[in-house]
């Protein structure tokens, strides 16, 4: 048997198709080592540092008034920014996925624009518009309207950085589904709103949820853009990430990591939900490869 050419060919083919043991061991070690060093170690560090001085101090750090007001402000900003982007994202996806018009790819590029703008610049543009020395600054001051160093500025900067999330997840899904369901409903006499609420929304609910999930995670964790517009007035305009920064710069490491661990917890819940959605509704969420 051994001098027959067939087993040798099979053996060679098999070797050419699969990495050898040592190659596999090497690549696996490199991949795991890299992920351990750059992903898992930072995550573990957050929780270790948060509980470094015991559970009591951790609890104290996250229940002191400034921390609580930071939590409240973060939730409030997300509660305004996320629904706004939800409505705009659904509208954008409807226009882009269901209709053919000229300038569509330009519109998509514009919607994606915030992803390629530095977060700091996302905040800067509003300071240039609404800040004391900005284009509209004097007018706003005369009318006693505060945008920069106040809630509206935080909300605007957050909406800017999270603008593309919902539309990006919805557009490819709605395009893939086509319009025949809606056309059938309309032909059978359903009103436009009824068609949208009972046909379109249920069809895309998982990718919509997926987009909102990512949008929310980014909205609550945004740092660079809100740094610029916040003014860091403690207890008033500090969101959780900004509160973390203040505590860290005051060398209050335990408190900084305690608040940071709440945000890390949010990230882990987001990842878990995201992974669950991807495993169970892989077809509905085709956008896994994009952020």
């Amino acid at each position: 048997m051994s001098d027959s050419p067939l087993p040798a060919a099979i053996y060679r083919t098999d070797r050419a198709l699969r990495d050898g043991f040592w190659i596999r061991a090497l690549l696996l070690t490199l991949a795991l080592g890299f992920l351990l060093l750059f992903l898992f170690l930072p995550l573990i560090a957050v929780f270790v540092e948060a509980f470094a001085k015991g559970y009591g101090l951790f609890l104290e750090s996250i229940t002191e008034p400034d921390a609580l007001s930071a939590v409240r402000l973060t939730l409030l900003v997300a509660a305004i920014a996320v629904p706004f982007n939800l409505v705009v994202g659904v509208a954008a996806a409807w226009a882009i996925a269901k209709f053919e018009f000229r300038g569509k790819s330009l519109l998509i590029s514009f919607i994606d624009l915030p992803f390629s703008v530095s977060p700091v610049i996302s905040g800067l543009v509003y300071v240039l518009l609404f800040g004391a020395q900005g284009f509209l600054g004097p007018w706003l001051k005369a009318h006693d309207i505060e945008i920069i160093f106040a809630l509206p500025g935080l909300v605007l900067a957050t909406i800017f950085v999270t603008f593309p999330f919902v539309a990006r997840e919805l557009i490819p899904h709605m395009q893939a589904l086509g319009s025949s369901d809606e056309e059938a409903a309309l032909t059978l006499g359903a009103s436009p709103w009824r068609t949208f609420l009972t046909i379109t929304l249920p069809n895309v609910k998982w990718s919509l949820f997926y987009g909102v999930l990512l949008c929310n995670a980014r909205a609550m964790g945004e740092f660079g853009a809100v740094t610029v517009v916040s003014g860091r007035i403690r207890g008033l305009t500090t969101t959780m990430p900004l509160h973390v920064e203040i505590l860290y710069n005051e060398y209050n490491s335990v408190a900084a990591f305690a608040v940071a661990s709440l945000l890390a917890g949010l990230a882990l819940v987001t990842l878990a939900l995201k992974t669950y959605l991807e495993w169970h509704f892989a077809d509905a969420i085709s956008a896994k490869s994009r952020h």
């Binding site: 740092f223 945000l263 990842l271």
Partner: peptide
Amino acid sequence: RRLLDAAVDLPFALPTAVAGIALASI
């Protein structure tokens, strides 16, 4: 493997300030 696959997205989900102080402390 699937856990590792999911963990790759951590930098997208983890707020940058949290990653920043964690990396600085390590």
